[in-house]
């Protein structure tokens, strides 16, 4: 089992990308694609952000830009499914749809789309009532998502279940619930679905972001987490993940283990 690092940086929420999207400037987008590639990203997340006038057009444009400079699969990050479909049309197969909640109409829109384009899905353990607090509720949603994957002809390997971590200074009691969810989600099917987290969320608004991110990531990995949407250019974080991956016996130790972890 490998750990999939999903590079979060090509997101219009960051000022440089937001500006680039507004002005259709390819440079920052392609630079971050290369930079995250070098750091070992398994997927490059693309989110047009709030500055895009036309989300469908911008998503397609950004995907084309990234495909020009990188062979790394793209994670299409949007709540607008037309924008995701526009991206899927220009991406290579093996893209990741980010994301779909456990709500029936949305599942019916997204899951067949994933099957059609040979894409994988980040599926969220929430519905229109919001994010549940308890692990039980999260796992309940995860189960619906695993069943839906089967229903629409997707394999467990095509599913990245995100049990949704919230900032620790807002909803501290969610952190252990997410860990328990991760433990249980890997029991839902054999082979198990993948799991992922929007890792940077956990430290949102705190002055200790890198420390909290990497500690929580390692804790989550011991509960089965095998992917994260994260800052892949945070060397300390990547080295912590490489070490955890090795100590979990997923990768054979060698003196250069942290270096080769980045070489996909």
């Amino acid at each position: 089992m490998a750990f999939y690092m999903i590079g979060e940086r090509i997101n219009g929420m960051f000022n440089d990308i937001g500006e680039a999207v507004a002005k259709f400037d390819p440079k920052p987008i392609q630079e971050w694609a290369k930079k995250q590639d070098e750091a070992g990203a398994a997927y490059l997340d693309i989110n047009v952000g709030p500055t895009a006038a036309d989300r469908v057009k911008s998503m397609r444009w950004m995907c084309e830009l990234v495909t020009e400079v990188s062979d790394t699969p793209i994670a299409l990050d949007s709540t607008n499914y037309e924008a995701i479909e526009a991206g899927l049309e220009v991406c290579k197969p093996g893209a990741l749809i980010n994301s779909c909640p456990a709500e029936r109409p949305k599942i019916e829109r997204v899951f067949p789309m994933a099957a059609k384009y040979g894409a994988k899905i980040i599926a969220l353990t929430m519905d229109k009532t919001g994010i549940p607090k308890s692990a039980d509720m999260r796992v309940g949603f995860a189960m619906e998502l695993v069943a839906a994957a089967d229903e629409f002809g997707l394999a467990p390997d095509d599913l990245f279940i995100d049990p949704l971590i919230l900032p620790c200074n807002v909803a501290q009691d969610h952190a252990p619930e997410v860990l328990e969810s991760l433990r249980q989600i890997r029991m839902l099917s054999d082979p198990a679905p993948h799991t992922t987290l929007g890792l940077s969320n956990v430290s949102q608004g705190t002055p200790f972001r890198p420390l909290i991110n990497r500690i929580y990531c390692v804790m989550a990995m011991t509960c089965g987490l095998d992917s994260a949407i994260m800052d892949v250019n945070d060397d300390n974080l990547v080295e912590a993940i490489a070490s955890a991956d090795m100590l979990l016996n997923n990768a054979i130790y060698c003196d250069s283990y942290a270096k080769v972890f980045r070489q996909r």
């Binding site: 054979i252 130790y253 060698c254 003196d255 250069s256 270096k259 080769v260």
Partner: peptide, 10 residues
């Protein structure tokens, strides 16, 4: 020694 073997290959 598998660890040394991997390192040597690298």
């Amino acid at each position: 020694d598998i660890n040394i073997l991997k390192q040597l290959n690298i």
